[in-house]
Simulated assay, not measured.
Amino acid sequence: MRVDFHTHVIPKNLPDFAEKYGGKWPTLEQTCACGANIMVEGNLFREVTDQVWDPDKRIQDMDREGVDIQVLSPVPVTFSYWADTKAAVEMSKIQNDFIAKTVTDNPARFVGLGTVPMQNAKSAIQEMDRCMHELNLNGIEIGTNVNGENLDAPQFLDFFEKAEEWNVPLFIHPWETMAKDRTPRHNFMYTVGMPSETALAAASLIWSGVIEKFPNLKICFAHGGGSFPYILPRLDQGWKVWPHLRLTTHPPSHYVQNFYFDSLSYDSLNIKYLIDRFGHERVMMGSDYPFLLREIPPGKVIDEMDDLSKEQSEKILGENALRFLNVKEKRLNHETESFDSRGETARSGV
Rank of each mutant, 00 (worst) to 15 (best):
5 F>G: 02
8 H>C: 09
10 I>P: 01
10 I>K: 04
14 L>C: 08
16 D>Y: 08
20 K>V: 08
21 Y>M: 10
23 G>L: 10
24 K>T: 00
24 K>I: 03
27 T>W: 02
32 C>P: 00
37 N>V: 05
39 M>Q: 12
41 E>C: 08
42 G>H: 12
42 G>V: 09
43 N>A: 14
45 F>N: 07
47 E>T: 14
48 V>T: 04
48 V>D: 02
50 D>C: 03
51 Q>Y: 12
52 V>T: 05
53 W>V: 01
53 W>R: 01
55 P>H: 12
56 D>N: 11
58 R>P: 03
58 R>K: 11
59 I>Q: 07
61 D>N: 15
66 G>K: 06
66 G>Y: 02
69 I>R: 01
70 Q>F: 09
73 S>W: 05
74 P>W: 06
76 P>D: 10
79 F>V: 03
83 A>S: 14
86 K>E: 13
95 Q>C: 11
96 N>S: 14
102 T>E: 08
107 P>A: 10
115 T>F: 03
116 V>S: 04
118 M>L: 12
118 M>R: 05
119 Q>V: 03
120 N>W: 03
121 A>I: 03
126 Q>L: 13
128 M>P: 02
131 C>D: 02
135 L>F: 05
138 N>C: 11
139 G>D: 04
139 G>R: 06
143 G>R: 12
145 N>K: 08
146 V>M: 04
159 F>I: 02
161 E>C: 01
165 E>N: 09
168 V>E: 02
169 P>R: 11
170 L>R: 04
173 H>V: 12
175 W>N: 09
175 W>V: 14
175 W>P: 00
176 E>I: 08
178 M>Y: 14
179 A>P: 02
179 A>S: 15
181 D>Y: 04
188 F>Y: 14
189 M>Y: 12
190 Y>M: 08
193 G>N: 05
195 P>G: 14
196 S>W: 14
197 E>A: 00
198 T>N: 09
203 A>F: 07
204 S>K: 13
208 S>G: 13
213 K>W: 02
215 P>A: 11
217 L>W: 03
222 A>S: 15
224 G>I: 11
227 S>M: 14
229 P>E: 09
234 R>G: 02
235 L>P: 04
239 W>L: 08
240 K>M: 11
243 P>D: 10
247 L>G: 00
248 T>P: 04
258 N>K: 12
259 F>T: 02
265 S>Y: 07
265 S>R: 04
268 S>K: 12
269 L>C: 01
270 N>D: 09
270 N>W: 05
271 I>Q: 02
272 K>A: 13
274 L>M: 09
276 D>F: 01
280 H>E: 12
289 Y>A: 03
292 L>P: 00
296 I>G: 00
296 I>W: 06
300 K>C: 00
301 V>K: 06
303 D>R: 07
303 D>C: 06
303 D>P: 00
313 S>W: 13
313 S>L: 13
314 E>P: 00
320 N>Y: 08
323 R>I: 04
327 V>L: 04
329 E>R: 15
341 S>Y: 10
342 R>V: 11
342 R>H: 15
344 E>D: 14
350 V>A: 08
